[in-house]
Each structure stands twice: as C-alpha cells, then as structure tokens.
Simulated scan of single mutants.
Amino acid sequence: MNHIYKQASSFNSVKLFNEWIILLVLAVVLFLASCTGKAEPMAAAPPPLLPVATVTTGQQETFVDYPATIQGTTDVEIRPQIAGTIDRIYVNEGQLVSKGQLLLQISELPFKAQLNNAKAALQAAQAAVLNAQLEIDKLSPLVQSKVVSDFQLKTAKTTYQIALANVEQAKANVNTAQINLGYTQIKAPNSGYIGRLPKKQGSLVSPSDPEPLTQLSDVSQVYAYFSLSETDFINFNAKYEGNSVADRISHLPAVELVLANQSLYPVKGKIDMINGQFDKTTGAITLRAVFTNAKGSLRSGNTGKIRLGLAHDHTILVPQSATVEMQDKIFVFAVGKDNKVSKVAIAIDGKNGTDYLIKDGLKSGDQIVLSGLDKLQDGQMIQPDRKGDKVAQLISKK
C-alpha cells in the first residue's frame, strides 16, 4: 500500500514539473518576440484638398436699397370754400376723374338769395347815381345865374361821387355772391383718383373743418422720396461727374423701385431732385425719383425701396463664403507659393449679391481658398484644387 502511494505521488510531481516547463517556455518565447518586434509608425495625414481661385480686377456694380415713400405728382386736399349742406355727391371713392369734373354739390339756395340781394343793391346804387346826376343838372344853371350858391352844386357833385362808389361796391358784392354761388359746385382741380369721402349727402361742411371733403391724387406719374446719409451723399457725389447739382442729376443712371412684396417695379425711374439742405434732425438729405405709372398700379402712400446702382472700376469681387469674420474683421486665406495658407484681413467696399467688393487687402493675381475655411489654420499646408479658378473667372465677368 505504501508502495502504491509513493508511485502516485511521484507521478503528480512529474506532471506539475512538466506544466511549469511549458509555461516557462511560453514566457521566454513571448519575451523574445517582444524584444525582436518593431512597432509600425503611423502614416502622416496628407494636406487637405481645397478649392483655390485666382482673383482678378474688373468693373463691378453694387446696388444699395433706400427706404422710399411714394406720392402722386399732385396730391390735393379738396375742401369747401363756403359753409353749407352737401346736396349731392357725384363720384365714388377710388374713382378716376378728369380735371373740371363735378365732384360734389353744396346747396345753392342761400347763395342764390345772396346774389339776388346783391343785384338789387346794385340797381339801387345805380338809381342813386342817376338821382345825383339829376341834382347836378338842376343846380348847374342856377349856379350860373347865381340863383343858388356854388356850395350846393359842390355838395351835389360829392353826392354823385358817393353814388358812383356805392355802385362799384354793389358790383363787388354781386361778384362775391356769384363766386360763392360757384363754390357750391366742387370740381376736380386736376385729373386723378378720388380718396375717401367721409362726408355724406346732407352733411354740413365748412372751410374751417379739420378734415377735407376728400383727396385727389394724380398718379399718372409718381414721386419716390428717399434719403441719403451725409456719408452716402459724399460718396454719391464722388461717383458721378458734374459741375453743378443739375449737371450731376443729368448724368445719374436710372434707378429701380423695389415694391413692398420685394418685386421690382417694371419701369425704371429717374432722379430729378436733390434737396437743398440736410435735415437737422436726421442728418440726411432727401432725393426724389420720378416713375411713370401708366397702369395706375402705384398710389400715393405706397412704400418701397429705391435701388441705387454704383459703378466700381478695377475692383476685386470675392464670394462671401470664401471669407471668415473674426472680431469685427473679415479675413480670407491666401495661398502662398509653397501652398501654405495665410490669414489676410480685407477691407470691404460694398456688396454685389452674395459677393464682397474688396477695397484693400488683396490684389489681382492673389490666390484664395474658396471653402473649408472652418478647419484651416494660419500657416497650414494644403493641396490646391485649381478648378476653383473657373469660379474666379465667372466672378470677374459679372
């Protein structure tokens, strides 16, 4: 029994020894493998491929919009010249009327009575002249015969002169009565569109009423009034030639009218007036553009924007998408000969759609990155994609 136990114990020892040998061999192998193996280095990332364009100079035109108010060439308040009651209204609100057309009728009965009284007073005054003349005719031979004194004749002649003056006054009263009677008919002073009619038939009206009877607007042509700031006006004068205001106006190009729905009015207008002084309150000066309105689509009180074009010679145009704004400055990434980019500040002279007009910072022949600017850093190397030059050519031809 002891013999069997010793054999089993010897067998377990050999097995345990063999397992330790195997583990030791594996550890040596792994150690040698780690010592002889070399780590593969990571490959460097290639420079990014970005579109690049060459900028060129050319003639460009920018457009600036200025808020405008529109008025008819003639906007007239129709007011009564006399007090009375409206007998009849001959037009409707919004109606197109012609010059001289009857609009309203004020009751004429009291004014006819005034005219008749004035005519009667005139006849009485004329009769008084005749009576005074008869008195002179009667006294003249008596004075020559020294039957009556010369004083009586002079008194009669004075009475005659007074009678003549009374006739003239009576005639003036007749004319006044006739004018007042004419004022009972309110006629259109010019052609145009009738506004609202707040007074109705039977309403009592007076010249002292705060509200007019209606308004009449001649909109066959309309005026669009807009204002320029002092800086804009200085630039405006510098852009267009002319020795005087009238001369400069004659050289101004046509302007466009942008309507409230952002559509363009189909007919271009012409600036025909520049105000003589700046508004002290706003610091702006008013200009006026005139537009034909044959279809009557524009009315007094419309609003819109005057689009003024400014020509720029030898300027560079850069897409806004090729710029980045930082700390109130605008930059582009210029590409050097070694394909390294550098951040360049630019000065903006205006906008043309989605493009910037460059005043300073770039010159013709410079290359800029068109997109992917958010991942670029100053001094970084890139792979230029020259297909972007097609974009530059398109820009230069705008």
Rank of each mutant, 00 (worst) to 15 (best):
residue 69 T to H: 07
residue 166 N to D: 08
residue 42 M to K: 15
residue 217 S to R: 04
residue 1 M to D: 09
residue 191 S to M: 09
residue 181 L to R: 09
residue 72 G to F: 01
residue 119 K to S: 14
residue 259 L to S: 01
residue 150 D to Q: 12
residue 150 D to A: 09
residue 234 I to R: 12
residue 323 T to S: 06
residue 92 N to M: 13
residue 194 I to K: 09
residue 366 D to V: 00
residue 1 M to P: 08
residue 219 V to P: 02
residue 45 A to N: 10
residue 368 I to C: 00
residue 308 L to H: 03
residue 339 N to C: 03
residue 225 Y to H: 12
residue 238 A to V: 14
residue 244 S to N: 06
residue 132 A to M: 05
residue 69 T to Q: 07
residue 305 K to P: 06
residue 86 I to D: 03
residue 285 I to V: 06
residue 185 Q to K: 03
residue 196 R to W: 13
residue 378 D to Y: 12
residue 197 L to Q: 09
residue 242 G to L: 08
residue 352 N to M: 07
residue 112 K to E: 12
residue 339 N to S: 04
residue 322 A to E: 01
residue 273 M to W: 06
residue 184 T to I: 09
residue 181 L to E: 10
residue 215 Q to V: 12
residue 197 L to H: 10
residue 165 A to V: 15
residue 131 N to G: 15
residue 245 V to L: 12
residue 12 N to E: 12
residue 293 N to L: 03
residue 46 P to W: 01
residue 157 K to P: 09
residue 354 T to W: 07
residue 324 V to A: 08
residue 384 P to E: 04
residue 240 Y to N: 07
residue 364 S to L: 07
residue 254 A to L: 10
residue 293 N to M: 03
residue 146 K to N: 15
residue 186 I to T: 00
residue 312 H to I: 05
residue 259 L to V: 05
residue 340 K to L: 05
residue 290 V to T: 11
residue 65 D to H: 08
residue 342 S to T: 07
residue 130 L to T: 15
residue 160 Y to S: 15
residue 384 P to Q: 01
residue 306 I to C: 02
residue 296 G to F: 02
residue 181 L to Y: 06
residue 111 F to R: 10
residue 128 A to P: 09
residue 109 L to I: 14
residue 22 I to E: 04
residue 294 A to G: 07
residue 121 A to E: 11
residue 132 A to V: 03
residue 324 V to Q: 07
residue 31 F to C: 13
residue 374 D to E: 14
residue 186 I to N: 00
residue 374 D to C: 14
residue 92 N to E: 11
residue 103 L to W: 00
residue 10 S to L: 13
residue 158 T to H: 02
residue 10 S to G: 12
residue 365 G to V: 01
residue 332 V to I: 06
residue 75 D to R: 08
residue 25 V to Q: 05
residue 40 E to Q: 15
residue 146 K to G: 15
residue 20 W to D: 04
residue 193 Y to A: 15
residue 285 I to Q: 04
residue 374 D to I: 14
residue 277 Q to M: 03
residue 240 Y to G: 10
residue 287 L to N: 07
residue 185 Q to F: 04
residue 285 I to F: 03
residue 325 E to N: 11
residue 155 T to S: 04
residue 220 S to L: 06
